[in-house]
């Protein structure tokens, strides 16, 4: 099968790979670039565990063809902490007991970051809508919603 060259920025560093046409972004991230932070929970776009940001927009890596990401900026949960400093969402999730098994957590935090990036002061309903594509089967939705709202409050306090 034909291979195509792709280049993109992954969590701030340049990546270039030859991939078979039709390869998903999830497979490229996990199998070629060893970024295991997006998870494959369903491989059919229903669980949200593979959520990543492509040019700031939330995307399901399992349904995104890698070749459509040429020249894009990609952010994953694994790249959110900078120089060992946690993102306010990461602090809020840890402090608020918003993790259980941890499998959905990366995708949840990415979906929440997409929300806070465009809406720094979301309502509870905004948060529910933002994570509505992410399944937590340990059913810790309430602490997750609380953590996102806490992170938004922490952000606004820091800026004030």
């Amino acid at each position: 099968m034909a291979k195509v060259a792709i280049r993109f920025l992954l969590n701030g560093s340049e990546k270039a790979e030859f991939v078979e046409s039709g390869t998903t972004l999830l497979d490229v991230l996990r199998e070629k670039l060893a970024d295991f932070s997006p998870k494959g929970g369903c491989l059919q776009g229903t669980c949200g565990a593979c959520s990543v940001l492509v040019d700031g927009e939330i995307r399901l890596a399992c349904l995104t063809l890698a070749e459509t990401c040429e020249g894009c900026t990609i952010e994953t949960a694994g790249g959110l902490a900078k120089d060992g400093v946690l993102h306010p969402l990461q602090i809020a999730f840890a402090d608020g007991f918003a993790t259980q098994c941890g499998f959905c957590t990366g995708g949840m935090i990415v979906a929440s970051k997409a929300l806070l990036d465009r809406n720094p002061a979301p309502s509870r309903e905004d948060v529910i809508e933002a994570i509505s594509g992410n399944v937590c089967r340990c059913t810790g939705y309430e602490p997750i919603i609380g953590a996102v709202l806490a992170a938004a409050r922490a952000n606004s306090t820091n800026k004030a």
Binding site: F36, A77, L80, I91, F93, A94, T99, G102
Partner: peptide, 21 residues
Amino acid sequence: RPRSDAFGHVTARTAFFADRT
């Protein structure tokens, strides 16, 4: 008390069985 696995979970560094090639 903080969960012992919370840091790994929120940084998505916790290794699950499939996180290896």
